[in-house]
Write a protein that binds this DNA or RNA. Structure first.
Length: 594
RNA sequence: GGUCGCGUAGCUCAGGGGAUAGAGCAACGGCCUUCUAAGCCGUCGGUCGAAGGUUCGAAUCCUUCCGCGAUCACCA
C-alpha cells in the first residue's frame, strides 16, 4: 500500500471528525512536495474549505495537527497558503529500504495466471528492408511488452508478416529480369537489402515505361495501368493466387532471403516474437464472418455484389468488406485474424502497434466487430504512434530519402566508437569488450531517443543531431549506472541490509533518491496503463540525474565513518539496480563499465 | 469539406486541474594531483498558437478561431 493510500484513508476520518462530513475521494489530491519546501507529500486543502468553512491556512493547520497525532508515519508538517506539507518519518524510509533494497526488480510483479494480452507489432512487408519507421514500431512494441509483463501480465508477442501481394511480385519480376541469378551469398548483400534493390529497380523501369506511354499521348492514369511491367506483375500475382508452382517456388526463395535479413536486424535490436504469422496464410480469413453478418442482415450487398457495412449511425461512412468479385480486403482479413486470435487466447486485450495513419481503420474494425455481435470488440487497442519525420519532410521509399534500419545502427555504432576513443574509454578498440560496449551504448542512444517521446506524437529525426550521447540520453543513464558499479566495487564492501539503520538520519539529498526509487512501482503501473515507455524513460533519466547530483555533493567512499559509507553504498547499489530495472523495460542493456 | 491528432525556450522534448511552467541541445562562464568530465554548477532564453468560458485555482477541462499533419479507395 502506498503512502498516499494510507494517508487518504486516515484523512477521510480526520476530516469527518473535524467537520462532521466525509470528503469526496476524488477531491483528495496528494502531490510530491516541491523541492523548495520542507516535506515529502503535499495535500491541497482547497477542496475541503466548503466543509471546514474556514480559511485555507487554518484548515490546513487543523488537518495537519490531527494527522500527526493519529499517524506515526508523519513526523512533521507545515502549511504554506492552501498547501499542507507533510514529512514522512525516517522509520518509514528505512523500512522501505530494508524491505526492497536487496530484492531484484523490486517493482516487478510476478506474472499472473489468467487472461493474456496479445500485442502485434513490426508486421513488415517482405519487399524491402526495415527503416526508421519500423524501428519506432519495433521498439515500442518490444518495450510495451516488457512493461506489461513487468506489471504482472502474461504477454504474447505477435508478428504478422505481409508476405504476399503485388509488391513482392514486383521484386520477383525485377529479379527474374535483371537479377542474373544473384543471391545474398553471391552478392554479399543482406537478403532483405537484395530484395529491396530489385523493388527499387522495378520502380525505376516502371517509371520509364510510364513516361514513354505519356509521351505517346496516354493519360498518367492510363499509363500507370497499361505499363507492360505492371501488367506482368499483376499476371504474376494471379498465378501466385492460383498456386502456380514456379511462381510459388520463386516466392518462397526470395522471401526466405528477406526473413534471414530481418532476423539479423531483429536480433541486433533485441526484439523477438512468440509467434510469427504470415498473411499468405491468413488473407482468406474473415470471409465467413462477413457471410454471417450478411445473413443476419447486419451487413448489406450492393447491386454489383460487393458487401458493405453501414457505419453512418456511428458517424462514419460505409465501409467495403468484400469486393464485387468476392475477394477480401484488408479489413476483412483483420476481422478474421482478430476473431481467430480471440478464439485461441481469450485475451484481456489485443494491442496493435500501428502508425496513426491507420487510426480510422481501427475505429472501423472495433465498430464492425461490435456490430457483428462480438462482445470482445472493446478489447481491441490500437497503440497508435506518430510518424518519424526527417528534416526535409516525410520518408518516401520511392524518393529514396529513407533511413535504413541497418545503416542507422551501423552509423550509431561508429559514432559510439569514435566518442569512446576520444574519451579514452577503452584501451583496445578492437577487443571484444570494447565492441560489446559500443554496441550497448549505440543501441541505448537509439532506443532511448525513440522511446522517450510520447508515442502518439510525431517525431523529428535529424540524423546529425538527434542521437546524442550527452544529456538526456541512454548513454548518460548507462554512464551513471556504470559509475555506481565501479563505486561499489572499489569500496570492497558488499552492501547488505545490516547497513540500514536510523543511527544517522537521512540527508535531504539521500531522501530525494529514496523518494524517487519509491515511486518506481507507480511509474511502472501508469506506464502499463498508458502503454507508454516514455514514462519509464523519463523516470530513468530523473533517477540517473538525481544520483549524479547526489554523487557530486555527498561523499560516499571519502566518508570517514564506515557505517555511513556502508549505508550510502547500499543506497547507491539500490539506485543502480532500479535504474537497471527501468532501462530493462525499454530493452536497454547496461554496461558494467564505460 | 467531414473526422481525428498535434501546437510549451532558437532546436528536440517533459509536464495533461494546483504553489514561482521544467529538462537536454545550442550560446556564454566556472569545476579534472579529490569516488569515472559520456559528468557537475552557473548565466542567457517563455504573452504554454489566439480569444472566450468553467473553477478558489487553467499550459492542463469546454467552445470558437488560426496553423501543421493524418485520414475519408473494390491499396495493404
Amino acid at each position: 500500500m502506498t503512502i498516499e493510500n494510507i494517508l487518504k484513508k486516515h484523512l477521510i476520518d480526520v476530516i469527518d471528525e473535524l467537520y462532521g462530513q466525509k470528503p469526496d475521494k476524488a477531491q483528495i489530491s496528494f502531490q510530491k512536495t516541491r523541492k523548495e519546501f520542507e516535506g515529502d507529500l503535499t495535500l491541497v486543502v482547497f477542496p475541503f474549505l466548503k466543509l471546514s468553512r474556514k480559511n485555507p491556512q487554518s484548515t490546513a493547520e487543523e488537518i495537519g495537527a490531527s494527522l500527526i497525532q493519529k499517524l506515526a508515519l508523519i513526523s512533521d508538517y507545515n502549511v504554506i497558503k492552501g498547501f499542507l506539507n507533510l514529512s514522512i518519518s525516517n522509520d518509514f524510509w528505512f523500512g522501505f529500504l530494508r524491505d526492497n533494497a536487496f530484492s531484484k526488480d523490486f517493482a516487478y510483479k510476478t506474472v499472473e495466471e489468467g487472461k493474456p494480452i496479445l500485442i502485434e507489432f513490426s508486421s513488415p512487408n517482405t519487399n524491402k528492408p526495415l527503416h526508421l519507421g519500423h524501428i519506432r514500431n519495433n521498439l515500442l512494441g518490444d518495450s510495451v511488452s516488457r512493461i506489461l509483463e513487468a506489471a504482472g501480465n502474461q504477454v504474447v508477442k505477435l508478428n504478422l508478416v505481409n508476405d504476399r501481394g503485388i509488391h513482392i511480385c514486383k521484386s520477383m519480376l525485377a529479379w527474374l529480369r535483371w537479377g542474373d541469378g544473384e543471391t545474398p551469398k553471391s552478392s554479399g548483400m543482406k537478403g532483405d537489402h537484395l530484395i529491396g534493390k530489385y523493388y527499387v529497380l522495378f520502380d525505376q523501369h516502371y517509371k520509364e515505361e510510364i513516361a514513354g506511354l505519356v509521351q505517346d499521348g496516354r493519360s498518367e492514369e492510363e499509363a500507370k495501368n497499361e505499363a507492360p511491367l505492371m501488367l506482368e506483375a499483376r499476371e504474376m500475382l494471379r498465378k501466385w493466387e492460383q498456386g502456380d508452382e514456379e511462381v510459388r517456388e520463386l516466392w518462397s526463395k526470395l522471401n526466405s532471403w528477406t526473413y534471414a535479413g530481418f532476423d539479423e536486424t531483429y536480433t541486433r535490436m533485441g526484439v523477438s516474437f512468440h509467434l510469427t504469422q504470415y498473411e499468405s496464410q491468413t488473407y482468406l480469413h474473415g470471409k465467413s464472418i462477413v457471410q454471417q453478418g450478411l445473413e443476419k442482415g447486419i451487413l448489406f450487398r450492393k447491386e454489383d455484389g460487393s458487401v458493405w457495412a453501414d457505419l453512418s449511425k456511428e458517424g462514419l461512412d460505409e465501409k467495403l468488406l468484400l469486393r464485387s468479385d468476392g475477394t477480401s480486403v484488408y479489413m476483412t482479413q483483420d476481422l478474421g485474424t482478430a476473431a481467430e486470435r480471440y478464439a485461441k487466447y481469450q485475451p484481456e486485450k489485443m494491442i496493435y502497434v500501428v502508425g496513426n495513419e491507420q487510426n480510422y481503420h481501427f475505429d472501423v474494425l472495433r465498430i464492425v466487430l461490435a456490430k457483428l455481435g462480438y462482445s470482445w470488440a472493446s478489447c481491441i487497442n490500437h497503440l497508435s504512434y506518430g510518424m518519424v519525420e526527417l528534416p526535409d519532410g516525410k520518408m518516401k521509399s520511392r524518393e529514396g530519402n529513407v533511413v535504413d534500419a541497418d545503416d542507422l545502427m551501423n552509423e550509431m555504432y561508429k559514432t559510439a566508437r569514435q566518442k569512446g576513443e576520444e574519451l579514452g574509454k577503452v584501451k583496445d578498440s578492437n577487443s571484444n569488450e570494447a565492441k560489446e560496449l559500443y554496441q550497448k551504448v549505440s543501441m541505448a542512444a537509439l532506443k532511448y531517443f525513440m522511446l522517450k517521446v510520447d508515442p502518439k506524437k510525431k517525431m523529428l529525426f535529424i540524423p546529425e543531431e538527434s542521437i546524442d550521447f550527452n544529456g538526456n540520453t541512454g548513454p548518460f543513464i548507462q554512464y551513471t549506472y556504470a559509475r555506481i558499479q565501479s563505486l561499489v566495487q572499489k569500496s570492497g564492501i558488499k552492501p547488505d541490509s545490516s547497513a540500514i539503520n536510523d543511527k544517522y538520519g537521512i540527508l535531504p539529498k539521500e531522501k530525494e533518491i529514496i523518494k524517487l526509487i519509491y515511486t518506481f512501482p507507480e511509474v511502472l503501473d501508469s506506464a502499463a496503463a498508458a502503454l507508454s515507455p516514455a514514462l519509464i524513460a523519463n523516470y530513468a533519466y530523473e533517477l540517473a540525474k538525481g544520483f549524479n547530483q547526489f554523487y557530486q555533493e555527498v561523499p560516499v567512499l571519502k566518508e570517514e565513518d564506515v557505517d555511513i559509507r556502508h549505508f550510502r553504498l547500499v543506497l547507491a547499489a539500490f539506485t543502480a539496480e532500479t535504474i537497471r530495472s527501468a532501462m530493462a523495460l525499454l530493452g536497454i542493456e547496461m554496461p558494467e563499465r564505460m
